[in-house]
């Protein structure tokens, strides 16, 4: 006689599906990695050299122990304004740059003769107090870094049709010399020159 109960669903392949999902997650999950704002300390030298810098090529940012920010010694600003100030300063291009590069033809700034001559001359000087909080300190570093990133992205878009960040990301998989040269070229157009002044004693 024919007993017709519905056949049990075959669960044999379930394990395969589970493993497939497991492998997918294994590949797709990135483990949390530490990250930070990378900076380089200046080399230690015994010889004190006085390098003459034009005052207009230096953007002074000072933070006091109450985390108030002062730009160029007279302008009190908020942390959110720093990026724009740095951007205007770096991208000013009012004169002739170092290393015989002549005028900055990729700058889109105001060409103000009172501000920086060329991005490769523009120095951002950060002065902090010993009592300044680390949060505010990193905030300024981040804002200045963001200004550089924006400028580099812009010039990279014009030259290579790709943002600087995309180029750097590509470098993880593509180790070709061509790409390396491209990144270096962009970095040379807008070199990050940030100088940290030894914090003041109270």
């Amino acid at each position: 006689m024919a007993r017709r109960t519905a056949p049990e669903i075959n669960a044999g392949s379930m394990a395969d599906i589970a493993f497939l999902l497991l492998i997918f997650f294994l590949v797709a999950t990135t483990m949390e990695v530490d990250g930070g704002i990378a900076r380089k300390l200046p080399q230690k030298t015994d010889v004190k050299t006085d390098i003459k810098l034009k005052e207009k090529n230096v953007l002074q940012i000072a933070i006091n122990r109450n985390d108030d920010i002062l730009v160029e010694g007279n302008q009190r600003v908020k942390i959110k304004d720093i990026k724009q100030i740095a951007l205007d300063f770096i991208d000013n291009g009012g004169g002739i740059g170092n290393k015989d590069v002549g005028k900055c033809d990729y700058c889109k700034g105001k060409k103000d003769p009172k501000s920086s001559d060329h991005p490769n001359k523009a120095i951002i000087s950060l002065k902090s107090d010993r009592g300044t909080s680390y949060g505010a300190f990193v905030g300024i570093h981040d804002a200045v870094g963001a200004a550089y990133t924006e400028l580099r992205n812009r010039v990279s878009m014009e030259k290579y049709g790709k943002s600087f960040q995309a180029l750097e990301k590509q470098q993880k998989s593509d180790k070709s010399q061509k790409l390396k040269d491209k990144i270096k070229a962009i970095k040379d157009l807008y070199p990050e020159i940030i100088s940290e002044v030894e914090p003041t004693e109270n």
Binding site: G35, G36, I37, L41, Q43, K44, R130, E198, P199
Partner: peptide, 19 residues
Amino acid sequence: ADIKRNLRDIDALKISYAA
């Protein structure tokens, strides 16, 4: 800053501020 001064003395120049 104190730590950074020590790092400079021994030529450990690459630093990073965690965020």
